[in-house]
Write a protein that binds this DNA or RNA. Structure first.
Length: 280
DNA sequence: CTGCACCCTGTTTT
DNA sequence: AAAAACAGGGTGC
């Protein structure tokens, strides 16, 4: 395990980014120190002033640039959003959109329905605990994401208070069992595949596309984002299965091909304003 | 195809 | 103190 510096053209706020409801597998393991699993190995990030360092088996600058979407320059993008939208501030805070491992993403967001970040985190940690043990950091244990056959025991999940999501996880694991990860990636890019899985509707599917499939023009519409859509486009409507794609199209037309990032920043502002403690 | 009750559980509000 | 509503939706009738 060696320590490396992550070189970034824009400052990253680790805490903001790792606990913003995009990924649920990182744990605080010290002062400004966060540990999780990246590409099946333990990674520890820590922030010293504005610089980010990481402990990993080897140097992974390029891979982390992808993880933190450092290939996209947020500051010009946010300036553009400021120019076309006065309802929100779009202040760069070091919050980054993440590109998350596809399988982790799928099962995390199945857990997310009608749920809070706190409990999603608990559930996702339990799923990880079924995987191969990797090691400990500051008393916390870390595991690889489990093989799919370890996720089909719905009774076990029910006992762990997964509720009606137990069947969703079990059924989806069974459905995905046949595919290699490469094949799966291709299939998930298909417009209709994700929503054909149990427990995945439009919103969860869009979360998976945005974070797990590098489709940055995707805007997952939850109740909070829909509230801001009503303000932005001056409509008074209810979100339904039918008009979901209409409003998504409206949002995409306004904010362009990285509108998923606009969504992330708007969502954050809405959460901050409504004083909801979702980020902890 | 649309609308709507219901779903598990933990927390907050009434 | 108990009940209802809500929480970053989805399913199935």
């Amino acid at each position: 395990m060696t320590s490396y510096r992550l070189y970034t053209s824009e400052k990253i706020n680790l805490k903001l980014t790792l606990f913003s409801g995009q990924i649920f597998s990182f744990k605080k393991t010290g002062e400004n120190t966060f540990t999780g699993v990246f590409k099946n190995k333990i990674i520890t990030f820590y922030q010293k002033n504005e610089e980010v360092f990481y402990d990993y088996e080897h140097e992974i600058q390029k891979e982390l640039e992808i993880f933190f979407t450092l290939d996209i320059k947020y500051i010009p993008l946010l300036n553009f959003y400021k120019s076309i939208c006065k309802e929100y501030n779009f202040e760069y805070s070091g919050l980054r959109l993440l590109r998350v491992d596809l399988l982790e993403c799928i099962f995390s967001f199945i857990c997310s329905t009608n749920n809070t970040v706190k409990r999603i985190t608990k559930m996702v940690n339990y799923l990880f605990s079924k995987g191969e043990f990797l090691g400990e950091k500051n008393g916390e244990k870390f595991f690889k994401f489990p093989k799919l056959n370890l996720l089909i025991d719905s009774e076990d999940l029910k006992n762990k208070k997964f509720g009606y999501r137990s069947e969703y996880i079990s059924e989806t694991a069974k459905s995905l069992l046949n595919f290699s990860e490469d094949v799966l990636r291709g299939k998930c890019l298909n417009e209709n595949f994700l929503v054909s899985l149990k427990g995945i509707g439009n919103k969860v599917s869009d979360c998976i596309k945005l974070m797990g499939l590098n489709k940055l023009d995707t805007v997952p519409i939850d109740t909070h984002v829909f509230k801001s859509i009503k303000i932005l486009f001056k409509v008074n409507d209810k979100l339904s299965k039918k008009n979901y794609f209409f409003y998504q199209g409206l949002f995409r037309y306004k904010f362009g091909k990285y509108c998923g990032i606009a969504q992330l920043y708007i969502f954050k502002e809405v959460m901050d304003k409504s004083n909801k403690k979702i980020f902890e």
